[in-house]
């Protein structure tokens, strides 16, 4: 289904940024967690903004590199001059993107679990649930963001356009969500950004609203990835 050769190549080309971002995230989380607050509070502090920003940097840069940059540069010609189908190329890149984000969030979650375990000697079942909801939710937000960047990367021949549209959208969503925090007057802008669908306060409050919000994020991710693969397989490539 995927090309192992391409997967190896893609991992090599993108792993360093993923590692750096993950390390920063994990380090921040360890620092916050080691102050000894309850998991719920630590999660609310950490997951409310920081990883969204950091992960977005990874998503915008990597999203472009996976397809558009290689078409722009022309190096995609070498992959496609071998008997590898375009759909396979796009699928491989998508699997890498999603997989890398999943692992990044897994490691970040571990950075919350391990200090908690060391400080308290155990992680209670309710703490497990919170941690899973926080990090899986962040993964779904990243899935939606990355889907948007992946779609842009599959549509455009030029890196600058892919980044302007994909990165522009993700950046705008983030900015709007930050704006909405500045008092009542700006509160309404939260309705214009998908970032709102990952709401740490809703998750921590124990309400079940997060379920449909997660579902929407997952839906955005699936649709954008699926169309990205479809479009890349069918369009003209100037190689």
């Amino acid at each position: 289904m995927i090309s192992i050769t391409l997967m190896k190549q893609t991992v090599k080309a993108n792993i360093s940024l993923a590692l750096i971002i993950t390390a920063i995230q994990a380090l921040c989380l360890v620092l916050i967690a080691s102050t000894g607050q309850p998991v719920k509070i630590t999660g609310q502090i950490f997951y409310s903004l920081l990883p969204g920003m950091l992960t977005s940097i990874y998503i915008i840069i990597t999203g472009n590199k996976l397809l558009a940059a290689q078409v722009d540069k022309g190096s995609m010609a070498y992959i496609l001059s071998t008997p590898v189908k375009r759909s396979k190329v796009a699928l491989t890149q998508a699997v890498f993107f999603i997989g890398s984000l999943f692992i990044m969030n897994l490691i970040t979650a571990a950075a919350l679990i391990i200090p908690t375990f060391i400080l308290n000697g155990s992680v209670s079942p309710s703490e497990w649930v919170d941690i899973i909801k926080f990090s899986f939710g962040l993964f779904l937000l990243a899935l939606a963001y990355s889907g948007i960047c992946f779609l842009a990367s599959s549509i455009f021949n030029l890196s600058k356009n892919a980044i302007a549209v994909g990165g522009g959208l993700v950046g705008a969503f983030l900015l709007l969500s930050i704006m909405s925090m500045f008092g009542e007057n700006f509160h309404f802008v939260k309705n214009f950004t998908i970032t709102t669908l990952y709401n740490v306060n809703t998750i921590a409050s124990g309400s079940s609203d997060y379920i449909w919000q997660f579902a929407v994020l997952a839906g955005i991710g699936l649709i954008t990835y699926f169309s990205g693969i479809k479009i890349f397989s069918k369009r003209d490539l100037p190689l």
Binding site: Q9, A13, Q70, K73, G74, S75, A77, Y78, I79
Partner: peptide, 9 residues
Amino acid sequence: PGEIAFPEV
């Protein structure tokens, strides 16, 4: 290809 740009190796 007419333009030479290699993969990242």
